[in-house]
Design a protein around this nucleic acid. Structure first.
Lengths: 153, 153
DNA sequence: CTGTCCTCGTTGCAGTTGCAATGAGGGCGC
DNA sequence: GCGCCCTCATTGCAACTGCAACGAGGACAG
């Protein structure tokens, strides 16, 4: 006869709910990427950043991606290696700072993204449709979690 | 000169946002669980379900947990094995159906949960405080994603 | 220069994962 | 009772992960 434990409902626990929602929303798209193009989520994230010429010139190093894409550098590095092996991107030493590795889409990679990006846009539109009138408030809450959380507990 | 790719902002892509938010919200708690108690997230999920006597009697099999906790059965199985090795739970063959493995907290496991659950409750309260007035709408949106998504794309 | 300290990217390692295959057991028609 | 097919849980395997350590290169003081 142990004393009763506090009640706790995992399905009302926000971190858990977020994890499940993240998994569900990623799954359908990720499966398509995997089955039809052989691309994993880390690879997809790298590709997205190479697809947008964020800065004036295509300076995209591993650390740029690491910073923008919430992935550890080793994960970025290995994703980039796989993408290079598959012929979607090329690596080149930066002329100015030879520690940097510049990543750039190849023609093949460009063509791939021309297929992938519309799929992602359609999917996002579908999610937004499902959220319906909740959309704005939902995204606002997500924003709060995303900006408030970094620092502390 | 390749034709321009469609614009796409990863930071506005809901599956990505959810993944980052899930990671961030889990991280702080997960670190405590790991450092102070040696417990991982899959293990924590199993423990939570053992801590609540959901059904009349403590019938908690691997498949029960698998269903309620959104984890693959192999993941549940391995988490359970680790917990058993650590002395937090016990496994026993079900008398009625010997394919089932009944999992139950040991005294040590019970004591562990008496420490962990309050931490989780405090953390949840903190998250809710940060969401402030967005809370209700945010959770409503999350609900939509969680129940709408299973079936289709 | 040169020494020291920092940054960038890769890699070794041990642990974890998903998936498919396996073995043990149950249910039911015949 | 005997097949046949289904369910439960575990495990083998190859791939992926985080983390720490590493080597190469840059910056800057003296």
């Amino acid at each position: 006869m142990t004393k009763p434990l506090p009640e706790f409902d995992l399905s009302g626990f926000t971190p858990y709910r977020l994890a499940v929602a993240a998994e569900k929303t990623s799954e359908a798209l990720a499966r398509q990427y995997r089955e039809r193009f052989g691309i994993s989520i880390p690879e997809w994230r790298v590709l997205v950043h190479l697809a947008q010429p964020l800065d004036g010139r295509g300076t995209v190093s591993v650390r740029d991606i690491e910073a923008r894409v919430a992935m550890e550098k080793s994960k970025v590095s290995r994703a980039a290696s796989r993408l290079e092996a598959a012929g979607y991107i090329e690596k080149a030493a930066d002329a100015g700072d030879r520690r940097l590795v510049r990543l750039a889409l190849t023609g093949k990679g460009h063509a791939l993204m021309a297929e992938l990006l519309p799929l992602a846009k359609t999917y996002q539109a579908e999610l937004e449709r499902r959220l319906g009138d909740t959309l704005a408030d939902f995204e606002a809450g997500l924003d709060r979690l995303l900006d408030t959380l970094p620092p502390d507990l």
